[in-house]
Design a protein around this nucleic acid. Structure first.
Lengths: 102, 102
DNA sequence: TCCTTAGATAGATGAACGTCAATATAATTT
DNA sequence: AAATTATATTGACGTTCATCTATCTAAGGA
């Protein structure tokens, strides 16, 4: 499995407010102006955070008029669940397949 | 859901080598001296990383003679999977339950 | 055209993180 | 007891990260 790629995804998620944003997006898309009032940080900080989520492949942006709508990527969720399963199941990188006695 | 707690877990996981260590432990326990040769970093760095994983509740340590054995915590895996499901499913913090139109 | 609103970008600053060399501790072996 | 092996701790240093203020762009409305 691609540890680097999965680590990048996890790092983008590893923040309480980014998790809350993901939770908020789990039933539909929202624009930044809907998200911002739920948090204490500034607008540039939200913009920065959304960029992190986007670069990690977690969300996508679509533009409508002057609003930018953010939505969770479906592949993100399925990739995430699959990576978790691969990680926790016995696999080729698992210790017991490399000659170690556990 | 407890975003802070879940974020702490994800942050501890959000590193390629720590993911690889979790993968190695997914079928049994290992001591540090079994893990270290798989990586390029030094022994103190491994010790530091194991402490991060332990403080996040991901692994537990048991001492046998001069060896410290590390093992994944069962609750970690079940908590992780449950948190993921809670996050991605519609829930009370989801946008559509807070008066936003998506 | 000017003003307002939504959002992004730039640059600065302080905090957190990863790493290593050196050293400490603890168990084992000789 | 002295040497060795396994691991942890300390302290330092450089890097990355989160945040802010200020500014910029783009779209809409007066």
């Amino acid at each position: 499995m691609d540890y680097q790629r999965y680590a990048t995804t996890l790092k983008a998620m590893s923040d309480p407010s980014r998790l809350q944003i993901i939770d908020m997006l789990s039933c539909g898309s929202l624009c930044a102006c809907d998200i911002l009032p739920h948090f204490k940080f500034s607008q540039p900080t939200l913009s920065h955070r959304m960029k992190i989520l986007q670069e990690a492949g977690i969300i996508s942006t679509t533009k409508k008029g002057k609003w930018h709508y953010y939505a969770l990527n479906d592949e993100f969720i399925s990739n995430f669940n699959q990576s978790a399963q691969t990680l926790f199941d016995d696999g080729p990188n698992c210790a017991c397949h490399q000659g170690c006695v556990s």
